[in-house]
């Protein structure tokens, strides 16, 4: 017996599945299959079953270095994005009294999200470069007499570019969670004699938790899956998991690329689902 609500649900969701199955499920299964095959060395694959690709990935010292490097970037970026995102949202929700102004300032923060990531990344070149504005300014002010070389094409530049691109993913959900806090709750706490720090700790932070969780999903999964920021902004000094995978694809080593793709995807999915255990985003968004 098919219930009517089930029938309608499946009917309405079927176009979505008609895209997700051929363009997400099947490709992942194909990668999974390819990761057990052998390369013929010319971009083709020999259809056998071998674990060599996985053994190769796990044996290589490089793999661990790459994951360490990527995890480092992910954690540092996440920390900056969370702190900046939280305080910017906090400012907009609790300190800007005019609702219309708050929404206007919020939009001001979100507009760059709708522009090209690559352009936003390269736009740091005229600021951070050896002859860039920051070095010019510091030298002009007499603070330094040699241009600071670490500003561009370094790990510093990578972090700057990530934080620049991804803080928005924290601001939107945190702003959304904080907006739902009933202002009279805070008034009541104030009247009952609690300090503003207590309010932050016992009301605002717990309410912000789901927004932070949602933002973390985006920030962590994007940094872990990125390669072009690291490639351009580190100037070749650093590598990333996906960057190495891309090199494998470049030399047509599909099976080993597929094996590391499977491992990376499993790790990203594990991270995301452990965050999802903390917060029910479906209820969170719909609330």
């Amino acid at each position: 017996m098919v219930k009517r609500s089930d029938l309608f649900g499946w009917l309405a969701v079927s176009p979505l599945l008609l895209v997700l199955i051929p363009f997400f499920v099947v490709p992942f299964l194909v990668i999974l299959a390819a990761s057990f095959m052998e390369s013929d060395g010319f971009g083709g694959m020999i259809q056998t079953f071998t674990l060599d690709n996985y053994i190769g990935v796990f044996r290589s010292r490089l793999t661990f270095d790459l994951y360490y490097e990527t995890a480092k970037f992910a954690v540092i970026t996440w920390a900056f994005a969370t702190v900046i995102g939280f305080w910017v949202s906090y400012f907009l929700v609790f300190h800007v009294k005019n609702q219309l102004l708050a929404i206007g300032l919020f939009l001001l923060c979100t507009v760059p999200f709708w522009t090209s990531n690559i352009i936003r990344m390269i736009s740091w070149i005229p600021l951070l470069g050896k002859e860039g504005l920051i070095n010019q300014g510091l030298m002009g002010a007499g603070i330094i007499d040699q241009p600071l070389a670490f500003l561009l094409f370094s790990n510093f530049a990578v972090i700057v570019a990530y934080v620049h691109q991804l803080t928005i993913f924290m601001i939107v959900p945190i702003f959304n969670s904080l907006s739902k806090i009933d202002k009279s709750l805070i008034e009541a706490a104030l009247d009952a004699g609690s300090s503003r720090f207590d309010i932050l700790r016992y009301i605002v932070l717990p309410m912000a938790k789901s927004g932070i969780a949602l933002g973390s999903i985006f920030v962590l999964s994007i940094v872990m899956g990125d390669f072009f920021v690291v490639k351009v902004m580190s100037g070749g000094g650093s590598a990333s998991v996906v960057g190495a995978l891309y090199e494998d694809v470049g030399v047509l080593q599909y099976p080993s690329a597929a094996a590391s793709a499977v491992i990376l995807t499993l790790i990203v999915v594990a991270v995301v689902f452990s965050i999802l255990r903390v917060v029910d985003i479906r209820r969170e968004i719909a609330r």
Binding site: V26, P27, L245, A261, T265
Partner: peptide, 20 residues
């Protein structure tokens, strides 16, 4: 399924579609 499709690394998905 939808969340998975959103968070999967873009290049990995692209590679998968290319291979398919």
């Amino acid at each position: 399924l939808m969340i998975g499709s959103l968070v999967v690394p873009g290049l990995v998905l692209g590679l998968g579609i290319g291979l398919t």
